[in-house]
Design a protein around this nucleic acid. Structure first.
Lengths: 212, 212
DNA sequence: GTCTATAAGCAGATAGAC
DNA sequence: GTCTATCTGCTTATAGAC
């Protein structure tokens, strides 16, 4: 019990760092700005986490475990009550997991999608390896589920449908907006998760069930 | 005619900078690395472009103008021969424009999708404004085209379908791969544009035509 | 137009007092 | 566990010789 109020410090750092990493990315975020906003000392990051990279991994790991569990639980529940798994079911369990993050008390939990979008885009190899190690379960279970809902497609096509579905969902919930880059006048409200869910669900479900 | 071989220098800088910005992002790229790889002097960037930000804008502008023209020409051609515009037509004209970049002599042209993906994700406000000014034509024409192929949907839903379609297409051609982040074993070959086109086209066409 | 040298600042990381 | 002070290195940008 030799610790002081370090858990507060750790939480404050994780909270602010998550925001900075999600909004500005890993390289554009600086520990100095993060610790200033979190109102902790600069040295605290190195004391508690060891390095900037280790802090980034900690930020990701805090969200990914509950997220994966949420998706897998949702899938298991549906599979227990239904005999035939539908495309809608898989998409719903994923969307539901996103909403659990969004409606969490910790409002920054909603930034998880944006962090995952960054992992897709950037060349964070060292981080990917860490994540991949933790998520073989999710990928295996999801792939099995996608195989069930698309029994007529060859394995390669099933993987592509899964890839496109997850990319589209993560990017949609990340609140990214192409139209904003192309023409601000025609913008949609990509930041509102209720809107996102309403419009993205029919889109990916239809994409999943598309004929070959 | 007082210029020496400056056009070569400018081209070399643009070429290497595009690669660095697309792969590592704006902030993680440094002018020193870019000029080292381009085998030009560090000061050349400031002499020819003025600043790192101005270089980034120049890199984007070099691709966006021909891309927009390509999409709009494709659309106009289809509209000239057909009376009824289909979802497939709009997707095809977009995919075709991506392929023109990919099959260009300048192999780095293919990185354009990755750059746009970054613009969606990152908070490059100053760059967005510059791009938006140049692309009102594209957005207006595309929105009209999407309205034609989805006559039964309310305007809000049409904007969302367009948003989801363009996001999915740009991200797909960017070669990003969620599965790689989640589980390397189940990976698809997201870097091969032929594969991308083959699997993304039916996906987004079905998403576009989804019932409400 | 190209180059060197240098300015001015911020980054991550660490040592050591308290 | 917290803090200050500092080290080392890299960044963008510029001034001025050639």
């Amino acid at each position: 019990m030799s610790q002081g109020n370090d858990s507060q410090t750790i939480e404050k750092i994780l909270h602010v760092a998550e925001e900075h990493f999600a909004v500005h990315g890993f390289f554009a975020s600086s520990l100095r700005q993060i610790t200033r906003d979190a109102e902790v000392n600069v040295a605290a990051v190195h004391y508690h986490f060891g390095s900037k990279e280790a802090l980034f991994v900690a930020v990701l790991n805090r969200r990914i475990v509950p997220f994966v569990q949420s998706v897998l639980c949702g899938l298991a529940q549906i599979q227990a009550t239904k005999q035939v798994l539908l495309a809608e079911d898989v998409v719903d369990s994923f969307v539901h997991a996103c909403f659990e993050l969004i409606q969490s008390e910790d409002r920054n939990a909603a930034l998880f999608s944006k962090l995952v979008s960054r992992l897709m885009l950037d060349e964070y190899r060292q981080f990917r390896e860490l994540l991949a190690a933790q998520n073989e379960n999710l990928a295996t279970s999801l792939l099995a589920a996608f195989g069930q809902i698309l029994p007529d497609l060859p394995p390669q096509a099933v993987r592509w449908r899964m890839h496109l579905t997850l990319s589209t969902l993560f990017n949609a919930f990340a609140g990214n907006d192409v139209l904003k880059a192309l023409a601000p006048a025609t913008v949609v409200n990509a930041k509102d998760p209720l809107q996102v869910a309403r419009y993205v669900k029919p889109f990916v479900v239809a994409g999943l069930k598309a004929p070959i």
